[in-house]
Design a binder for these strands. Structure first.
Length: 1085
RNA sequence: GGGCGCAUAGCUCAGUUGGCUAGAGCGCUUCGUUUACACCGAAGAUGUCCGGGGUUCGAGUCCCUGUGCGCCCACCA
C-alpha cells in the first residue's frame, strides 16, 4: 500500500517540528558534521540584529540569503559555520528604554546608573529572546551553541584588549576636539550618526567692524575669534592679517582677518565670522591660521557664564535677545527671511546637534604605524602594516582585491568614504555599552594639590590593582533631617572587595565597645582610608591612638565636636578622652576635614582649629539648608576618588565592539583572548579554523557604519582580513517603493507572512527578483505566488510517491534504454545542477531560483510528468528518482522546510540538510547521446505545442477529437514511437498516422515543424485557417527580409564571426522552406 | 556642490564579455472538473527596451548628451 500525502502542503504543520529535528541533529554545528579532516571551512557571521525590538523584512531577506549560502556550502561537504548573535546597539537601545521610562515619569538620571542599566538589560534580554525565536522561525541554520552578544564577557575582553593595543600603538588618543554633541542625549555622535534636515531660517546681515557679513547664527558672535575671507578675494586683500576691534553686544572684541580657501566668495559678502569652538569648518580655518577658540555654548546647549546676561539661555533664546540688542545698537544691516538651510540633527532623537569642544577618545586614522608586532601564523592574507595608517590599509585591502565587494560599484563609495575619513570619535556619554577601559587617579601628592593634581592614567584590559579600602564610620547621632552622606558615598564608590562600612551597634554605644567592633570587623592597614561623619571621627582617632593603627587617610566630615557642651576644650567626649594629635598625625599620611556649613550649631572655628591641630587640609563646602546635600557630597566624592582608581565613565561607540565581530565571536571565553608580547592572541580552535570568514552579507546601508569599521578593527587586531567577500543586499520596500514603517502602516511583517504562507514562500519572495545592491519591492501577492509554488512542488511529489517507487539512492541508469522524454528531462536536470551551482557560486540567488522554478513547474510538471502518464520506458522510474532527488537537493537551500518534509517521506536514513550537493557525473559519450535524444524530444514538444496552438486558433472545440497525418520523411522512425505522448498531451488527436512521404490531405489544418508536415483532419475552419496561414507567412516573410538584408551586407558577412553568419544562413533557409510549404497549403483552400 | 543607481509588457522585475525574431512572474483575454495540484491546466494578447546623438557589420547591452525618479556623501557660515 503506497502512502499518500495530503492534498495541499500546510507549512504550519511541519515547520517547527522540522527545525527542531535539525537542531537536535546537531548539524548546525560544523563540529558534528561528518566531513574529512581536509574539508574546507565556510564561515558567515550573522550581522547581529540590534536588541531594540523585532525583526523586519530586511532581516528576513538577510537571513534567507545567508541560510542559502550556509546550506549550499554545508551540502558541498564544507565545515559550514554560521555564527549568530545580537548587538547591544548602545545609543539605540538606551534611547528606546528612555522612551519607555519617560511614560513612567522617570529619566535615566532620576533612576540612577545602576537601576537604569538594570532596566536596559531586562529590555535587551526580552528583545533578544524575541529575535532569536524569529531567526529560528525563518529556518536559519545557525550554530546556536556559538551564540554571542556584543556586550558579553568574551566580547568585552576583546574590546578592552584591542583598545589597549591601539592605545599603546598611539592610535587611540584623548583630546579636546570639536565633536558633534547632542544636547538631549548628552553624548557625542560619530560623523555618520548625524543627519541633516532642511529648515526655514533667517539670514542676518550684520555690521561687523569694517565688514558686513551674513550669518544664520548671530548668537555665536560671542565666540568669534576671526574673520575669514578667500585668499583671492580682491575686496578684502588689504585687510588680511590685520586685527580689528569689533563692537558687540558685550562690548568690543578683537578678531584677526585670515585668508582661507574654505571660504566661498559667492556667499554673502564673501567674508565670514569664525567661531572655532562651534563649527567644524571654522575650527579647521582657525587651526590652519593659528587662531584660538572661545567656547560659549555648554553641553546642555546653553550659553555659558562668559556670555554675560545671556548666560543660561538656550541658543535659540540667546539668538532672539542678541538680535534684539544688536538692532538697538544698529549692528544689524538687514535680515533675509526666506533663507533655507540644513541643520544637523541627532539620528536617534532628531535634536539639533551643537558642535562643541569636548574631551573625547579618538582613533587616529592617519597615523603611520611603525614596528608594530603582529601575529603572523594562520593568516590567509598577510597585511603588512609597516609605515601605513589605518586609512592606508583599509584602502589597500579593497584595491588589491583581498576583499571583494558585490556589487562592485560600492567599492567606489567605500574609497570615497575612507579617503575622507576623519579621526573616529569612539567615546560616548551614554551608559549602556562597554565602558572605556581607562582608569584615573590623582598623581602623587607632591605633584599638585586638590582637584588640580595631575591625574595618573591607566589603560588596561583589567582594572588596575588597588589595595585601598574604605572604612566608613557613622556618627552616633543620626537624626532624621541629617542625610546620610556615608551611605551615599559608599554607593557612589561602588567598590566590591575592599570596602567596609561600620555601623554603630546601638544608639548609645560605649566607645570601647565600638572600637572593638571596628577592629574586629574591618581590615585596617596602611592602605585604608577611614571616612567618618560627625562623632565617628572621635571613634576613628581614638582607635588610631589606642591601637596604634597606621592608615593612609582620614577624612572627617564635619567636626566631631559635641555641640551641647560648648566646651572650650577642643575635643571632648565623655570627659577626659582627649586625643593625642601628634600620634594621629604620625600614623595617618593625610588628613582632610570637611566643614559642611557655616551657620550651624557647630562653630566654624572649631573645625578650623581641629584642622590646624591635625595639620589637615580643610575644605569648606557652601552653606546649605541640610547637612551635606548632593552637590557638596560630589566634592567629597571627588576627594575620595582621587585616592583610588576610577574608571572613565564614558562608553565606547557600539561600532567599536561590533567592528570585531568576525573574530571576537570565534572565542568562547574571555581567557581565550590575550595580549602576548604586544600582540593580540585569540587562542581558540575556532579562530584558527574559521577566520577569516568567507562572506559578510549585509545591507548596503551599513557599508560605512559597520563593514568599514570591521575592516578597520580586524586588519588592525589580527593583521588579516575579516572576510573575503562582502555581499550587499538592498532594502526591502513596500509596493510603492517606500520604506516600510509603522507610522505609514505599510509594514509587511515577516512572521505574519510565515504563518500565512509558510516560511519557504516568504524566503523565496525575498530572494527571487532581487539583485545585490538593489532595493526590493515586496507585496503580499508575491509571497502568495510562492506559496502556490511550494504547493506545486508538494503535489509533484504527491503524484510521484503515489505512482512510483521512490528511493533515496540514485540507481545506475542505462542510457541506452531511455525514452526521448527521459533523456530530455535528464538533460534538463543536469543543466539545472550546473546552472544553480554556478549561480550560487557567484551570488546570483535570484537567477538560480528562477531557473529552478522554471524547471520544476514548466518542464518537470508540465512535460515530463504528463508525458510519462502515457509512455514509460524501462528506466522511467529510475530517471524520476534521479530527477526528484536532485531537485530536492537543489531546492533545499532556498526552501528548506518543504524539501526536508518531502525528503523524509521518501527516505528515513539521513536528513536532507546534510545530503550531498548534486554533481553531473557522466561520460562525454553519455552526455552526447543524451543531448541528441533530448533534442529529438524538443522536436516532439514543438509538434505538440504547434498542434495545440493551431487547434485554438481554429477554434476547434476542446473536446473534439481529430485525426492527424504526419509526413515525417527521415524522422518517421523518431516520431512514430512518440505517438502515445503526442496523442496524450492535450492535442485531441485520437488517430495518428506517421508516414515517410505521402499526399497531403485537402482542407486540413496544416502545421509545419522544420521539414515535418502535420495535418489535422476533420476540424478545419477554412477562414480561420487561411488567416492563420497568412499571418504565419507574413511574419516569416518579414524575417526573411531582415535576414536577407543582413546577409547581403558585405560588412556583416566579412566582419561578423563565422558562426554568426552561418547561423543566419541556416535560419534563412529554414524560413524559406517553411514559407514554401505554408503557401502550398494555403493554395489548397 | 560631488558621487552612485534606476528608467524594458498594465504591475514587479530578469536580461552575463554587444549576436534578440526582447523574456519571467503577477495581472488580463479565451477555453478547460483529462483521478498530483483550481494554491490547477491549455492557448493567447500586450513593448518607439526614457529622448537625442555616436561607436560598430550589428546596440536593450558600449560612449556622449538631455529628461524624470531614487539614494549616498559633503555641507551653505
Amino acid at each position: 500500500m503506497k502512502k499518500e500525502l495530503p492534498k495541499a502542503y500546510e507549512p504550519q504543520k511541519y515547520e517547527d517540528k522540522i527545525y527542531k529535528t535539525w537542531e537536535e541533529s546537531g548539524f548546525f554545528n560544523p563540529d558534528n558534521l561528518d566531513v574529512d579532516d581536509q574539508a574546507e571551512s565556510y564561515t558567515i557571521v550573522l550581522p547581529p540584529p540590534n536588541v531594540t525590538g523585532t525583526l523586519h523584512m530586511g532581516h528576513a531577506a538577510m537571513l534567507a540569503v545567508e541560510d542559502i549560502l550556509i546550506r549550499y556550502n554545508r551540502m558541498q561537504g564544507k565545515r559550514a559555520l554560521w555564527v549568530p548573535g545580537t548587538d547591544h546597539a548602545a545609543i539605540a537601545t538606551q534611547t528606546k528604554v528612555e522612551k519607555i521610562i519617560k511614560e513612567e515619569g522617570e529619566t535615566r538620571h532620576t533612576l540612577g546608573r545602576d537601576k537604569f542599566l538594570k532596566r536596559v538589560r531586562a529590555f535587551a534580554q526580552e528583545s533578544h529572546d524575541t529575535i532569536v525565536n524569529q531567526v529560528k522561525k525563518m529556518g536559519s541554520s545557525c550554530d546556536w551553541s556559538r551564540e554571542a552578544y556584543t556586550l558579553d564577557e568574551t566580547r568585552h575582553q576583546a574590546v578592552n584588549s584591542v583598545f589597549k593595543l591601539m592605545y599603546d600603538d598611539g592610535l587611540i588618543y584623548r583630546g579636546k576636539r570639536i565633536v558633534n554633541w547632542c544636547p538631549r542625549c548628552h553624548s557625542t555622535l560619530a560623523d555618520d550618526e548625524v543627519e541633516y534636515r532642511e529648515e526655514d531660517a533667517k539670514l542676518y546681515w550684520i555690521k561687523y567692524g569694517p565688514f558686513v557679513l551674513a550669518t544664520a547664527r548671530p548668537e555665536t558672535k560671542l565666540g568669534d575669534t576671526a574673520v575669514a575671507v578667500h585668499p583671492k578675494d580682491k575686496r578684502y586683500k588689504d585687510m588680511v592679517g590685520k586685527e580689528y576691534d569689533i563692537p558687540g553686544v558685550l562690548g568690543e572684541f578683537r578678531v584677526k582677518v585670515v585668508a582661507d580657501r574654505a571660504v566661498d566668495m559667492e556667499f554673502g559678502s564673501g567674508a565670514i565670522k569664525v567661531t572655532p569652538a562651534h563649527s567644524f569648518v571654522d575650527n579647521e580655518i582657525a587651526e590652519r591660521n593659528g587662531v584660538g577658540m572661545r567656547q560659549i555654548i555648554d553641553e546642555d546647549g546653553k550659553m555659558m557664564e562668559n556670555c554675560g546676561k545671556y548666560q543660561g539661555m538656550t541658543t535659540t533664546e540667546a539668538r532672539k535677545e542678541i538680535v534684539k540688542d544688536m538692532k538697538k545698537m544698529g549692528l544689524i544691516d538687514h535680515i533675509e527671511d526666506d533663507y533655507k538651510h540644513n541643520i544637523a540633527v541627532c539620528y536617534r532623537c532628531d535634536t539639533p546637534i551643537e558642535p562643541l569642544p569636548s574631551l573625547q577618545w579618538f582613533i587616529d586614522v592617519n597615523k603611520p604605524l611603525r614596528g608594530r608586532k603582529q601575529k603572523t601564523e594562520n593568516r590567509k592574507q598577510k597585511i603588512d602594516w609597516e609605515g601605513k595608517s589605518i586609512k592606508d590599509v583599509c584602502l589597500e585591502v579593497i584595491k588589491e582585491g583581498k576583499i571583494k565587494i558585490v556589487p562592485k560599484r560600492f567599492e567606489k563609495s567605500y574609497f570615497h568614504w575612507m579617503e575622507n575619513l576623519r579621526d573616529w570619535c569612539i567615546s560616548r556619554q551614554i551608559w549602556y555599552g562597554h565602558q572605556v577601559p581607562v582608569w584615573y587617579r590623582a598623581g602623587n601628592r607632591e605633584q599638585g594639590t586638590g582637584n588640580n593634581r595631575d591625574k595618573e592614567i591607566y589603560v588596561g584590559v583589567e582594572p588596575p590593582e588597588d589595595k585601598t579600602n574604605f572604612v566608613f564610620l557613622h556618627g552616633f547621632y543620626r537624626t532624621r533631617e541629617v542625610k546620610d552622606p556615608l551611605n551615599w558615598l559608599n554607593q557612589k564608590l561602588a567598590r566590591k572587595d575592599n570596602f567596609w562600612e561600620i555601623l554603630p551597634k546601638s544608639e548609645k554605644p560605649k566607645l570601647k565597645e565600638q572600637m572593638n567592633y571596628v577592629i574586629e570587623n574591618a581590615k585596617i592597614n596602611e592602605d585604608t582610608i577611614i571616612v567618618t561623619h560627625s562623632l565617628g571621627g572621635i571613634l576613628a582617632m581614638k582607635m588610631i591612638e589606642e591601637h596604634d593603627l597606621k592608615i593612609k587617610k582620614l577624612v572627617l566630615l564635619s567636626s566631631p565636636i559635641i555641640p551641647k557642651t560648648k566646651s572650650k576644650e577642643l575635643i571632648g567626649y565623655n570627659k577626659g578622652n582627649q586625643i593625642d594629635f601628634e600620634k594621629i598625625k604620625k600614623n595617618v599620611k593625610e588628613i582632610v576635614v570637611f566643614q559642611p556649613y557655616e551657620d550651624h550649631v557647630l562653630p566654624l572655628e572649631e573645625n578650623e582649629k581641629l584642622a590646624k591641630f591635625l595639620d589637615a587640609k580643610l575644605i569648606k563646602v557652601e552653606d546649605s539648608a541640610s547637612h551635606f546635600n548632593e552637590d557638596e557630597n560630589q566634592e567629597i566624592l571627588e576627594e575620595l576618588k582621587n585616592n583610588i582608581w576610577t574608571q572613565d565613565e564614558d562608553t565606547l561607540d557600539t561600532w567599536f565592539s561590533s567592528g570585531m565581530w568576525t573574530f571576537s565571536t570565534l572565542a568562547s571565553s574571555p581567557d581565550q583572548i590575550k595580549i602576548e608580547d604586544g600582540k593580540l592572541v585569540i587562542d581558540s580552535e575556532d579562530f584558527k579554523n574559521f577566520h577569516p570568514t568567507q562572506v559578510l552579507e549585509t545591507g548596503y546601508d551599513i557599508l560605512f557604519f559597520w563593514v568599514a569599521r570591521m575592516i578597520i578593527m580586524t586588519t588592525y587586531a589580527t593583521g588579516d582580513i575579516p572576510f573575503e567577500d562582502v555581499y550587499l543586499h538592498g532594502l526591502v520596500l513596500d509596493n510603492k517603493g517606500k520604506k516600510m514603517s509603522k507610522s505609514k502602516g505599510n509594514v509587511i511583517d515577516p512572521l505574519t507572512m510565515c504563518e500565512k504562507y509558510g516560511t519557504d514562500a516568504t524566503r523565496l519572495s525575498l530572494v527571487i527578483g532581487s539583485t545585490p545592491g538593489h532595493d526590493l519591492r515586496l507585496n503580499e501577492e508575491k509571497i502568495a505566488g510562492y506559496r502556490n509554488f511550494a504547493n506545486k512542488l508538494w503535489n509533484i511529489f504527491r503524484y510521484a510517491i503515489k505512482n512510483y517507487e521512490l528511493k533515496i539512492k540514485n540507481e545506475k541508469i542505462d542510457i541506452n534504454k531511455l525514452s526521448l522524454v527521459d533523456a530530455w528531462i535528464i538533460k534538463r536536470i543536469d543543466d539545472a545542477i550546473n546552472e544553480v551551482s554556478n549561480s550560487l557560486d557567484n551570488y546570483k540567488f535570484s537567477q538560480a531560483g528562477e531557473w529552478l522554478r522554471e524547471f520544476t513547474w514548466n518542464e518537470l510538471a508540465d512535460w515530463y510528468l504528463e508525458a510519462i502518464k502515457f509512455k514509460k520506458s524501462q528506466e522511467t522510474e529510475k530517471v524520476l528518482n534521479y530527477v526528484l532527488i536532485n531537485l530536492l537537493k537543489l531546492w533545499h537551500p532556498f526552501i528548506p522546510f518543504v524539501t526536508e518534509v518531502l525528503w523524509n517521506n521518501i527516505n528515513s536514513e539521513k536528513q536532507l540538510i546534510i545530503s550531498e550537493w548534486p554533481k553531473v557525473e557522466k561520460s562525454a559519450e553519455d552526455k552526447k547521446q543524451i543531448i541528441e535524444q533530448s533534442n529529438s524530444f524538443n522536436l516532439i514538444k514543438d509538434i505538440i505545442t504547434n498542434i495545440r496552438n493551431a487547434r485554438v486558433v481554429n477554434k476547434v472545440e476542446p473536446g473534439k477529437k481529430v485525426k492527424a497525418l504526419v509526413i515525417a520523411g527521415k524522422k518517421k522512425e523518431l516520431i512514430e514511437p512518440q505517438a502515445d505522448i503526442i496523442k496524450g498531451l492535450r492535442t485531441g488527436i485520437e488517430e495518428l498516422e506517421v508516414v515517410k512521404s505521402g499526399t497531403k490531405p485537402d482542407k486540413a489544418i496544416f502545421i509545419s515543424v522544420g521539414e515535418i508536415e502535420i495535418y489535422l483532419i476533420g476540424a478545419v475552419d477554412e477562414e480561420k485557417e487561411k488567416k492563420r496561414l497568412k499571418d504565419l507567412i507574413e511574419r516569416l516573410r518579414q524575417l526573411i527580409k531582415m535576414t536577407e538584408s543582413k546577409l547581403s551586407d558585405k560588412n556583416f558577412v566579412e566582419r561578423a564571426p563565422e558562426p554568426i553568419v552561418e547561423k543566419e544562413r541556416g535560419r534563412l533557409k529554414e524560413f524559406k522552406e517553411e514559407v514554401k510549404s505554408l503557401e502550398k497549403q494555403l493554395k489548397s483552400f
